[in-house]
Amino acid sequence: MSVNHAADRAGAPDLGELRRRAAEAARPEREEGLIVCENLVRIYQTEGVEVQALQGLDLAVARGEMVAVIGASGSGKSTLLGILSGQDVPTAGSAEVAGHDLLTMKRRDRLAYRRGTVGFVWQQTSRNLLPYLTAAENVMLPMTYAGVKRSERRNRAGELLDLMGVGYCADRGPGELSGGEQQRVAIAVANANRPRVLFADEPTGELDTATSEEIFAALRQANEELGVTVVVVTHDALVSEQVQRTVRIRNGRTSTEVLRRITTDDDGAQELTAEEYAVLDRNGRLQLPSEFTERLHMRKRVRLALETDHIGVWPDAAAQRAKADADEVQAETEGDDA
């Protein structure tokens, strides 16, 4: 049998090309977004104990979003913020913010990243501002580092303080400002160099509810007016009401997301709806909310069932018996009470 190998060779890829294609096919599809974290791991030692603060966290934030990352104390949210702000380095995984690969960034790049790409607001109002500078000087300080001309610095600082509603505080020192004013000045400082992302770590942690509202209003204003993507890290679940998307972190992984949107019904009435989603990572791992698993007595094992349009998650037989017993006991108790 004769085979026209030449014709085959002309149309067929060579071995190198095949390898490249194979590698591309094997490479996992990357998430899109301004902030993309994939399988992020951070391990550190404290007093001889190894702590896995992040255990393969995935997160994607789109440009212009205002996102809240919430989690209990010790869930890894501050570690995540430390990494995203360029002040810490992950142990493994990948983290990219505005095109900057945070794992491979060199020192100079890291500096430029902090100067121009990201801005920060911390929880402690007094720790956001240098106490020996006025509000305006505090706003001008990052611009000084970035090499902005003096006249431009002054103008920009004035504009930012006005935008945040604290223009009247320009010449006051932080000690002369209220907590809310300090945080608004801090937001102005964080936006001084026109960052692409603004990170806020518990920005309302020390503030009362009314002032917190003002701070979130300021953050939203920065998000909308200045186009900066805002990531707020907090342990306060109520904060999620202030943002469009809330990502919950549990045990160093993203567990659920809540999306808020305003829907308009047929009558034209607007309604704020919130839907909670569990996060499915690239490896197919899924964290079930603890209230779900506890309610159904799911422990150690669950049974999965693939249906035509969904996957059923069932407690195993032992758990079902435990649940039945519990229901029975509860029914008897209620009967006695009655």
Binding site: H100, Y145, A146, K149, E152, G227
Partner: peptide, 13 residues
């Protein structure tokens, strides 16, 4: 537009 991560108007001071 938001910043691109580099000083834009001169060297750092």
């Amino acid at each position: 537009g938001p910043g691109d991560g580099t000083p834009r108007r001169g060297p750092a001071r």
